[in-house]
């Protein structure tokens, strides 16, 4: 493994630890005693104390943090106070909805963004470029949850093509499931795609100014040939970075879009858990999402090394 990847792996681990610390601490400053919150104001103090003991809240913070970490590492998540089931059980079903939703919108946004971005760059300063850029400027300015509402209004309420929310469940078949995810995915993908399209365009334009592109033209390659053979792969390096960073936004976006479409995914779980003060669930789901994001960024770094030979191990 090259030094680059080793360094990245180290960063990956450190970021994960940082994320866990941040998550843990931000929930520790929560005002009020969780045990009291769960049992209600009228519960006798003895019952509250008993629950505190059961939850391990009487132990010092540092101990609880390392306990939690150890549990996470061994894959044993906590038990939800409110649902009274292991968090793992809650996550298991929901991740099968949220993750496909995130992937679907990522695919959509990347597909549209690359096509539009490359098209705009190749028509630089012409009408095609200007209209794509205007469109993307609009896309960036629209809140994703409002777009979600508009999509519901148009496709579900007016046209009746899709249901206005909910998720049919994978057991109803692949097509039906994707159908109930397509509107949420579009509302998530639009903003991300608009940002990515602008970025792709400027990355392609920047690369087109490179000396080696002129060299390629001097070899006799056509404009189009140069674009495909020399520009795109080089331009993809910065674009992939942005894609990695966007994944974080996309996952966060699922929280709000799942809420709009009433999709029973991780996002809704987290919102419900927050309003129920179900710390165990919030903590475990947040760290799961964070780990996913950090992992994706690590994968992006590995992709770098695949694309860019300058980062490959030097033959010594």
């Amino acid at each position: 493994m090259s030094i680059f990847l080793l360094k990245r792996f180290f960063t990956f681990i450190v970021t994960l630890l940082g994320a866990s610390l941040l998550t843990f601490l931000s929930l520790e400053i929560l005002p009020g005693d969780p045990a009291r919150v769960i049992l209600g104001i009228d519960a006798p103090q003895s019952a509250v104390d008993a629950l505190r003991l059961q939850l391990g809240l009487d132990r010092p913070m540092v101990d609880r943090y390392f306990d939690w970490l150890a549990h996470l590492l061994t894959g044993r998540f906590g038990v939800s106070y409110t649902y009274n089931v292991p968090v793992m059980d809650l996550i298991k079903h929901r991740i099968g909805i949220t993750f496909p939703l995130a992937i679907l919108s990522m695919l959509l946004s990347v597909l549209v963004a690359l096509i539009l971005g490359i098209y705009a760059a190749s028509r630089h300063n012409k009408i095609g470029d200007v209209s794509v850029m205007g469109l993307s400027q609009l896309g960036i300015s629209i809140p994703n949850f409002w777009l979600a509402l508009l999509l519901i209004l148009f496709f579900a309420v007016n046209l009746g093509w899709f249901s206005s929310g909910g998720f049919v469940g994978w057991d109803k078949g692949f097509i039906k499931s994707i159908q109930s995810l397509i509107l949420p995915a579009i509302s998530l993908a639009t903003v991300q795609g608009a940002i990515l399209a602008r970025f792709t365009r400027s990355a392609v334009l920047e690369t087109m100014r490179e000396d080696y592109v002129r060299t390629a033209r001097a070899k006799g390659l056509t404009r189009r040939g140069t674009l495909w053979k020399h520009v795109l792969r080089n331009a993809m390096i910065p674009v992939i970075t942005i894609m990695g960073l966007q994944f974080a936004n996309l996952l966060a976006g699922t929280i709000i879009v799942e809420e709009v479409f009433a999709i029973p995914g991780l996002g809704r779980l987290i919102l419900q858990a927050i309003s129920n003060r179900d710390i165990t669930v919030v903590r475990d789901v947040v760290i799961l999402l964070a780990a996913l994001v950090v992992f994706i960024n690590f994968v992006v770094d590995v992709l770098y090394a695949v694309i860019d030979p300058r980062l490959k191990p030097q033959d010594v």
Partner: peptide
């Protein structure tokens, strides 16, 4: 281009595709 007329540029550092 490249067939009947060839060209060498000033900057060998940046004139080759790094990938």
């Amino acid at each position: 281009r490249g067939n009947s007329i060839g060209m060498i540029f000033q900057e060998p550092m940046t004139s080759l595709n790094p990938l």
